[in-house]
Design a protein around this nucleic acid. Structure first.
Length: 383
DNA sequence: GATCCACGGGAATACACGGATG
DNA sequence: CATCCGTGTATTCCCGTGGATC
C-alpha cells in the first residue's frame, strides 16, 4: 500500500470508525517490506548473490516452522528482485525471441498447493514466463513441457523458481518436482520453501526461525496501525495475542482479524478484551493457513463458503444437501468434496450425535481454518 | 480458408465394496 | 446380522485446442 492509498483510506474513515481497512490483518496478505527479518534477508541475498552478475545462484532450500513468514519473505524478495532484473516483462508487446532478449534472470514464485499435477506445473511456469496467455484446455502435457523447454533453451533466459509449500502431504513431492524440472534443470535455480529441508538436499539451506515474542508484537502493531483507527488496540492486547500464538504470525493475525471483525459488528470503537478472547477462540488449534483455503479450486471454495454460512452444521448428508441446494452440484458431489476436504485437513470430521438408529453413525465436518477471516475475505471477493 | 472433429486434462458423478455400529 | 457411512475408483461429461478435411 503506498502513501497515497493510506491517506485516501484515512480520509474516508471517519473519526469514530474502528476499521480503516482489514486487509493488513489478513494473514494471506503479504506486506511489501517484511518487518524484523534483516538477518535472514542478508543470508538469502548472500546465496542469491550471483544474480547480481547475471548468473544463476545455487539451488536453495528455505525452511522454518508454520507462520514464520517464509512465504512473505520470498514474496517480498522476489518482487523486488524482479523489478531489478526481470526486465523482460517490462518490454511492452514483445513476443519475438531473438534480438530483444537481454541478459536477465527472472524470479518466479509458484505455490505447490496450486501445482498439483505435471500439467499444472508446466502451465503455471509457462504462464509466468511468457507474455501471451497459455491454453488451459485442449492441449497435452507434453506440448506444454516442450514449450517450457523451448523457452529456456534460449541461452539468455534463466530463472530462479521458488516452489512454496514443498514436502507437504498435499503437495507434489520434492522428487516429483525434480523430475518436472529435469528437462531444463540447467537453466533454472530451484528454491524449495517448506517446513523442512527436503530429503537428500545437497544444495544451500537457509533457516527461517519462528518469530520471537517481541518481533511478533512489532508485526502485529505495524499491521494494526494500517488496519485500525489509532489506539483501537492496546499494547497489552497485542502482547497477549503474540504470547498465545507462540511465534506463529498466521495465527496471531487471524485472531486479531477475528477480534476486529467482532468489535466492528458490535459497533465498538475499540477492540475489547472479550473481542480478543473471541478472536483467539475462532482460530482452531493447528489451524490450516487461510491462504491454503483460498488456493483451493473455485468450486471447493464455494462449498466452504456455503458451509460456513450454516449454523449449526448438521450431519453430513444434511449439510451436503443444504449446500447442493444453492449450487449446481449434486448432493453426492458436495458430500464427496466435504470428505475430500476433511482428508486434506481443511475440515475435520467430528462425531455427530450418536443416538440415532442402527448402522454406522454419520459425522459432521467442522472448519479447521479461521472462519472469520475466510468469511469476510470470501464475501469481499464475491462482490 | 472455413468447418469439423478427435484429443487431452480435469471436474463431476455414479457406483460398489469394506467396515463400523448397534 | 442388518444397516448405512466412508472411501476408492470407474465412468461420463465438459470444453478449448489444433490438426485434418474439404
Amino acid at each position: 500500500m503506498d502513501l497515497e492509498q493510506r491517506i485516501a483510506r484515512r480520509q474516508t474513515a471517519r473519526d469514530d470508525d474502528l476499521l480503516v481497512d482489514l486487509s493488513p490483518l489478513n494473514p494471506a496478505v503479504h506486506l511489501p517490506d517484511p518487518v524484523g527479518r534483516g538477518p535472514v534477508l542478508e543470508r538469502l541475498l548472500d546465496v542469491l548473490d550471483p544474480v547480481f552478475d547475471q548468473r544463476l545462484p545455487p539451488d536453495l532450500a528455505i525452511y522454518g516452522p508454520k507462520g514464520a513468514g517464509k512465504s512473505a519473505l520470498v514474496n517480498a524478495l522476489f518482487t523486488h528482485l524482479n523489478d531489478q532484473f526481470g526486465q523482460r516483462h517490462r518490454q511492452i508487446g514483445t513476443t519475438t525471441r531473438a534480438g530483444t532478449a537481454t541478459d536477465s534472470v527472472e524470479f518466479v514464485h509458484l505455490d505447490a498447493y496450486r501445482t498439483t499435477s505435471e500439467f499444472r506445473f508446466y502451465h503455471t511456469l509457462l504462464d509466468s514466463v511468457v507474455e501471451e496467455s497459455v491454453p488451459r484446455r485442449g492441449v497435452g502435457t507434453e506440448t506444454l513441457r516442450n514449450r517450457v523447454v523451448e523457452e529456456f533453451s534460449s541461452p539468455t533466459r534463466t530463472a530462479v523458481v521458488a516452489v512454496d509449500h514443498v514436502s507437504d502431504p498435499d503437495s507434489p513431492s520434492e522428487a516429483q518436482l525434480r523430475q518436472w524440472f529435469a528437462p531444463f534443470a540447467d537453466d533454472v535455480a530451484v528454491v524449495a520453501v517448506g517446513r523442512s529441508v527436503p530429503d537428500d538436499w545437497s544444495a544451500e539451506t537457509v533457516h527461517v526461525p519462528e518469530y520471537r515474542q517481541h518481533a511478533l508484537v512489532d508485526i502485529l502493531t505495524e499491521r494494526v496501525s494500517q488496519a485500525l483507527a489509532s489506539n483501537a488496540l492496546g499494547h497489552g492486547q497485542a502482547r497477549r495475542v503474540a504470547e498465545w500464538a507462540t511465534g506463529d504470525a498466521h495465527d496471531a493475525l487471524a485472531a486479531l482479524f477475528g477480534a476486529a471483525d467482532r468489535a466492528e459488528a458490535d459497533g465498538a470503537n475499540r477492540i475489547r478484551a472479550s473481542d480478543v478472547d473471541a478472536g483467539i477462540d475462532g482460530v482452531p488449534e493447528n489451524s490450516v493457513h487461510v491462504g491454503r483455503v483460498f488456493a483451493l479450486p473455485e468450486n471447493r471454495r464455494a462449498v466452504l463458503s456455503a458451509l460456513v454460512a450454516l449454523d449449526p452444521i448438521p450431519p453430513i448428508d444434511d449439510t451436503a444437501s443444504a449446500i447442493a441446494e444453492g449450487s449446481d452440484l449434486s448432493p453426492a458431489t458436495v458430500k464427496r468434496f466435504l470428505y475430500e476436504l476433511a482428508e486434506r485437513n481443511v475440515l475435520e470430521r467430528v462425531a455427530a450425535d450418536s443416538s440415532a438408529g442402527s448402522g454406522r453413525h454419520p459425522s459432521r465436518v467442522e472448519p479447521r481454518f479461521p472462519v472469520a477471516v475466510f468469511r469476510r475475505v470470501d464475501a469481499e471477493r464475491r462482490t
